[in-house]
Amino acid sequence: MKSFEKYFMNKQYARVEELSDKLAEIDPLIDWDVFRPIIREMYDNHTEKGGRPNIDEIVMMKMLVLQSWYGLSDPELERQANDRISFHKFLGFPERIPDRSTVWAFRERLIDTGKDEKIWEELQRQIDSKGLKVKEGVIQDATFITSDPGHKKADEPREPTAKTRRSKDGEWTTKNKKSYFGYKLHTKMDIDHQLIREIETSPASLHDSQIDLTKPGEVNYRDRGYFGGKCKGYNATMNRATRGHPLNIREKLRNKRITRKRAPGERPYAVIKNIFHSGHVKVTTTLRTHTKNIFTCFSYNLLQLKTIQNKNTT
C-alpha cells in the first residue's frame, strides 16, 4: 500500500517538476546525511526525555529550512507541509509530517544543546570542501530583525510569567530618525562567492562596532558604523569625519573604494527580508531569534550555492 502511495505522489509531483521546483534544485547541493549524527546526539541520553525522535532527523531539519525559506509560522508550516506536494518531495515523502508542537520542541532542543551552531559549522565545512573558501576578503554588516514590543513602555521589563508575544530580550533603538524594536542580525559574507560565513544575533540597541566576526588575516570591509571598532583582521573600515577633523581627499577616495567592495553585502538582507520574509520574528528571546537566523542564513547559502552552480554551467 505504501509503495502505491509513493508511486502516486511521485506521479503527482512530476507535474510540478515540469513547472520548475526550486526546492528540488537546492536539495542535492549539500550532503544532508552528514547532519544526521549531529542531530542524533541530542537524543542520546538516558533521561526520561531521551531516546530517538519519532521522525527522521533530516526531515526535522528540512522542516526548519522550509520554514525559513517561506517565512512560515509553526502552524502554517505544518499546514503547508501536509498540503504542498513540493514540500513532500523535499522531505522525502515521509510517512508522517511533524506537527507544530514537534517542530517547536525540536527547535528548542537545538537551542538547549547548541546543535544549531554545529549544523552551521557543518554547512561551512561543506562549502569549503567545494573549493569556495574565503580568498579576497569579507564584508561585515548588520540589519534589524524586528519583533513585537507589546503594549508596555519600552523600558518596562516583560515579566517571566507574562502570557504575551512581547519579546523578552528585544530592545528599542533609533536609526535615521526611525525607531526599531527587536534584534540585530550581524553577518560576515565573503566577497568571492557572496556566501554568509559567520553570524551573530544581538539586541537591536547594540552598536554594530561591538561585534567583530573577522578572523586574523582576513580583509574586512565595513561601513562608517564600524569606525573605531575592533577588528581581528585587516581593517578596511570606511573613515568617518569627526568634529574638527573633516575627511581629506585621500580618505574620501578610500571610502569610495571600500563602498564598491561592500556593495554586494546588501544582497543577503534583501533576500532574507523580501524573498524569505524573515525580517520579523514572533519568538521572544535572543537565543530563539539566533536559531531562526541560523536557518534563514542556511537557506540563503543554499540559494547562493545554486546561483554559483548556474554561473559555472553557463
Rank of each mutant, 00 (worst) to 15 (best):
K118E: 15
P149H: 09
K168D: 08
G131H: 05
N82K: 15
L132P: 03
K115W: 04
E121Q: 11
R109M: 08
H88K: 04
K130H: 04
A142V: 15
I119C: 03
N176L: 14
L110Y: 03
T113N: 11
K175Q: 11
H151F: 14
A142M: 11
T102L: 04
K163R: 11
I139N: 09
S101T: 15
E108T: 09
H88P: 00
R109S: 07
D83E: 10
W172T: 05
A105H: 13
G71V: 01
G71C: 02
K163E: 12
S179C: 08
E108V: 08
D99T: 10
D112V: 15
P98F: 15
V134L: 14
A142Q: 13
K115T: 14
R109N: 12
S101G: 13
D83N: 08
D112T: 14
N176C: 12
K163D: 10
D141P: 06
K175V: 03
G131S: 03
D169M: 01
Y180T: 02
K89N: 08
D116E: 12
D128M: 03
P75Y: 09
K152L: 12
D141A: 10
I139M: 11
K118W: 10
L77E: 01
I139S: 09
K178H: 14
F90R: 07
H88W: 06
R165F: 13
W172R: 09
F181Y: 06
G182S: 04
F106W: 01
A142G: 15
T174M: 02
K178W: 04
E156K: 06
V134Q: 09
L91C: 04
E76C: 08
V138A: 01
K118H: 12
Q140T: 15
N82Y: 06
D155R: 11
E171S: 04
Q124I: 12
T164H: 07
G182T: 03
S86K: 11
D112K: 15
F90G: 09
Y180G: 00
S167I: 02
E171N: 03
D128K: 09
T161H: 06
G150D: 05
L91Q: 02
L91A: 02
E159L: 04
E76R: 10
S147R: 03
K133V: 12
K163Y: 05
F87P: 05
P75V: 13
E121I: 07
Q80R: 07
N82D: 14
E76S: 10
L123C: 02
Q140N: 14
D169P: 00
P149W: 04
P75S: 06
F106R: 02
I127G: 00
E76M: 11
Y180V: 01
P149K: 08
A105I: 10
A162E: 13
A154V: 04
I119F: 00
A142L: 10
T161Q: 06
T161K: 06
L91T: 02
F87H: 11
G114Y: 04
L132I: 05
G137F: 05
G182F: 01
D169Y: 00
T164V: 10
K133I: 13
K118Y: 09
P160C: 01
W104F: 13
S73L: 15
Q126R: 05
R100I: 06
V138I: 08
